[in-house]
Amino acid sequence: MKISDIKTLLDAEVVCGEENLGHDVYSACGSDMMSDVLAYVKDQAVLLTGLVNSQVIRTAEMMDMVCIVFVRSKKPTPEMIELAKESGLVLMNTEKRMYEACGLLYKSGLVGNGVRHE
């Protein structure tokens, strides 16, 4: 699906990166623990999280992700938005909670495969 489909499915508000909404994405992950994202995630393009600090942006950048969705109406700080713009990341937020947001995307075909292989 395209990033714009995520916006529609989650009734999300785009914070920055509007110009990249046409990018295709094939998998996603949801976590508030960046340590786990760095350890277990592989090739996921979208991160759903309720954590709000600059390390969320850096973690996504390190993992070559292209979109971060903040759940539970969490809003990124101006500093985070600036970092995201530098990296071309799409940031959006949704009122939906983590479980529901992940479920809606999964049901629509955005799977969670690509978990690290030992």
Binding site: M33, S35, N53, Q55, T59
Partner: peptide, 15 residues
Amino acid sequence: SLGFGAGMGLPNMKR
């Protein structure tokens, strides 16, 4: 509470 400290740092670096 900032999303780190799960005890994955060094193992991840090795991995």
